[in-house]
Computed example of a mutant assay.
Amino acid sequence: MEDTSSAPSRRRAAPMAPDQRRAMIVAAALPLVIEYGASVSTAKIARAAGIGEGTIFRAFADKDALLAACMAEAMRPDLTVARLESIALDQPLTSRLAEAAEVMHGHMTRMGAVAGALATAGRLERPAHVQPGKDGRSPDREAGLAAPRSALAALFAPDQDRLRLAPERLADAFQLMLMSVGRPGAPDPLTTEELVDLFLHGALTTPEEAR
């Protein structure tokens, strides 16, 4: 008879906390929602997450609740802010803004992909109590843009002595410009270099450039 007394005992993995499990399910669901839209099945999401389908409905009340969580996750600015804050401040402002534009483009593409997938299926609705403000921005959307805007302002700060406006105002304008030129289907979109040059130097050439 084989002696197994010295064999290591197999321990069952510690169960996830509810918030961790929801986050894990949403992480698995996001790329599927982008690919398949709201029609993606919970069975497919469960397979991607490596769990049983019933686990999804223990974590979320229904599929709509899961889709709403996916939209909320896509709008979270945490990773975007961290990437903006990691941009080296000792490089020229042009380089800083070019890096920032790429980071913001990725963030907006992700939000747009999820929102577009859900809107196409009629599953993206604004709650009745949430109305846009006088400037047309919804409170939820504005809250999601505030943190990246603050990180963008920090990128302007080292050149504050040369700026025509406060870093905060320039960050707001730069963010709005990125959102406008980065919209899906924009004809002949500007490159990152063109966008940053246009923002910093305007539409007119200098007399030296015109020669």
Rank of each mutant, 00 (worst) to 15 (best):
I56W: 00
E209Q: 13
L200R: 08
V103H: 06
G122N: 05
P167E: 15
A157S: 12
M71E: 01
R149H: 11
S6K: 13
A38L: 03
I25F: 06
V196K: 05
L93V: 02
P132A: 03
R211H: 12
R123L: 13
A186Y: 11
P158A: 06
G52H: 13
G202R: 00
E102A: 07
A171Q: 05
A29I: 10
H107K: 10
P15V: 04
A82S: 09
A151G: 09
L30D: 09
A173P: 11
R47G: 02
L32C: 09
A65C: 14
G133K: 01
E142H: 08
M16Y: 13
M24Q: 13
T192V: 12
G182T: 12
L163M: 04
S6D: 14
A74Q: 03
E168Y: 04
P8S: 11
H107G: 01
T55R: 04
V114S: 05
R12C: 06
A115K: 07
A82D: 15
P127K: 00
A146H: 11
V40H: 01
S150Y: 14
G136R: 10
R169T: 10
A13G: 09
A59L: 05
E208C: 04
A48G: 08
D172W: 11
A68Y: 02
T206N: 06
A113G: 08
D3A: 05
L32Y: 01
E194C: 02
A43T: 13
S180F: 14
L30F: 12
H129T: 13
E35Q: 06
A38T: 07
V130M: 14
E2C: 04
D62H: 12
A143C: 05
K44H: 13
T205R: 15
R137T: 14
A101E: 10
A98G: 03
L32F: 05
A186G: 03
A43Y: 03
A119T: 00
P77I: 01
A151T: 01
R164P: 00
A13D: 09
I56S: 02
V114P: 11
R183Y: 07
A128R: 10
A147E: 07
A48P: 08
A154F: 07
R141D: 10
R83T: 01
R126M: 11
E193G: 08
L176I: 02
G37M: 10
E35I: 00
P139E: 11
L30A: 15
E35A: 08
V40T: 02
S138W: 12
E73C: 04
D140R: 00
L155W: 09
E35S: 04
P158D: 05
R126T: 10
F60S: 04
G185P: 00
D3Y: 01
G182N: 09
A115W: 04
F60P: 03
L170P: 01
F156Y: 15
M75S: 13
R10H: 08
L198W: 02
R123Y: 06
E2L: 04
A65R: 12
L152Q: 06
R96P: 00
L84K: 03
P158V: 04
